[in-house]
Design a protein around this nucleic acid. Sequence first.
DNA 1: TTTAGCACTCAATAAGATTGAATGCTAAGG
DNA 2: CCTTAGCATTCAATCTTATTGAGTGCTAAA
Lengths: 345, 345
Amino acid sequence: MELSRRDLILKHIVEHFIKTALPVGSQTLIQTYQLTFSSATIRNEMLALENAGLLEKTHTSSGRIPSSKGYQYYVDHLRNKSVDERIKQQLQVILSQKAQSVTEIIQKSSEILSNMTKLASVVLGPNAQQEKLMSIQVTPLENNSATVVFITDSGYVENKTFVLPKNIEKDALADCMNLINKRLRGTPVSELSAKMEAIKPILEDFIAEHDVVYQAFTQAFLNFAGERLKLYGKDSLFNQPEFAHDGDKLRKILTLLESPKLLNHVSKSSGNVAVNIGDQDQNHDLSIVSSKLRMPGEKEGRIALVGPTRMDYDRALSALEYVTEMLEKYFEKISDKTKVEGKGK
Amino acid sequence: MELSRRDLILKHIVEHFIKTALPVGSQTLIQTYQLTFSSATIRNEMLALENAGLLEKTHTSSGRIPSSKGYQYYVDHLRNKSVDERIKQQLQVILSQKAQSVTEIIQKSSEILSNMTKLASVVLGPNAQQEKLMSIQVTPLENNSATVVFITDSGYVENKTFVLPKNIEKDALADCMNLINKRLRGTPVSELSAKMEAIKPILEDFIAEHDVVYQAFTQAFLNFAGERLKLYGKDSLFNQPEFAHDGDKLRKILTLLESPKLLNHVSKSSGNVAVNIGDQDQNHDLSIVSSKLRMPGEKEGRIALVGPTRMDYDRALSALEYVTEMLEKYFEKISDKTKVEGKGK
DNA sequence: TTTAGCACTCAATAAGATTGAATGCTAAGG
DNA sequence: CCTTAGCATTCAATCTTATTGAGTGCTAAA
């Protein structure tokens, strides 16, 4: 489909601004894109686009820059949807490797995304709260301490090392662990703390200093609650000219990236692919592009790319869409295998 | 002991520059510290100090700033050695908590250090290579995958989830794990890969697609090799005026902080307490203050504080010395307990 | 509807002028 | 011999002003 002249101009402006970070004027447009109509015509169109709220000026006599609405329009109607070949290749390499977990695959993909787009990449894992505890194992160590290892049904591992109470009996500890194992195995992560609380009085029968054991466990459970948010390529943002020379802004953004707020922004976005342009609280110059990712076991996560409002949406979106699509296909294949094998047994 | 006038002036200059980050002039000194001698006298002393290589000028008619040598002299002879009460309190709180591992205690202490000094704090754990493997446990998961958990004698946990080969037999896997367990338990981490290589041909007897298992293990072993370097309060550096407004420098430094080079700098320093002032490769404006830390089990680590050359050495060193001293005392207490109990049995 | 032409705006850059905190040096005084 | 008042000098930082050039909007003609 042919673009209308107005859309064409908007497209050029958005793409040029994305490249240069400088306001775009009518002259520049003609020269760089060899347009056939005159600068005055472009100015007229620009005025129209500005009235429609798609463009903005930084000052009276400056060139135009896209507004949030303008970016949105570009994303929805104008972008090219071209996937970088290198991403295809690199993803292929990752997916062909053996002996890796779902988590690892997702994280590696996320790194590729970050590298190729020069944006920060965020992986929001499925909520650990709904996973069930599969295994609790205690290993005594030297120096009178011990390590407990917890594994959930999806293979998420949490561990906690603690110094044993002074006069603990080996047998008592073993009995104690047996009890805990019986009671907690199969419990959803979200209910662990409550169950542990219930067991507490029974513990007292086994161990004099039961408190240490109780605390070691509850503290470990707390870690499950921590968001499963992984961040990659944070440093890419340094190279963005809008942040590089503004230490204050950079700091703000890095802080945001590490704060739970980011989680809200990523997780609240609905739909398969969501684009949040410059409406992050406080941060008008930050955009988040995120995509849902269906994982094996009916789990659901999100992958997101975070960068300046002036990010290459085409590149970012295309890459993100491609990667999530390929991952989902790959996961389906894995699940199929499992099923087939299950029938065969 | 009374300081000589020259030393006094140097001390004032260093401390004033640390506070303000501005070159210090003779007038300023008199006013802020109500010195009794005249500005000309100070200028004379300054000249002497400059000739001795302890002070520098940024340009012909500027005030003086300390040179690396000047800082070093300050650190060695002039600093106050005053420990912030808040650090004492906070450390007390940490040490009185129960059910925590040595690692956790060190990490929490490191966070306190970072918070209180506004510097980045680095913990270099003891070399994992010398630890012995204590336990290998395989837990089958849903979705046809499994998790292996490795625990070393110091309670360091590494884990790896992988998708199982298609037609694997449960029994075969169990036998296989038994074998591996027998062969690898007690092995120093550094020799794991070699031993695994040796076992490889035997694996083939058990499992058709032995490669997946082999790879999963060797990949997990690779993680042991990763430096046990923990970084805290990286963001503190943003607040340092010398970095805040220089995006380029900031980026360089953050990169350095995450790179293995940092490890070299921290680990190569000898002696109990080491101060490396501004001699980091490429980074003349970065200093590292580090201290050895004797841990239980004759292990040895280091804690370091990283910041601009113009850091508050008194604060940093005093805090670091205090914390490591207290930690070592605490660890000794723990070890004593263990010994006493051991005899009692 | 398009566009040439023109007056106007304004950020960015460059060039000069001013300021002020600092220095070094000299000479006088303790 | 050490200290210090006084003075000429230096130079980054700041402010001031001029210049430039890419941009706009508007009008009138094609």
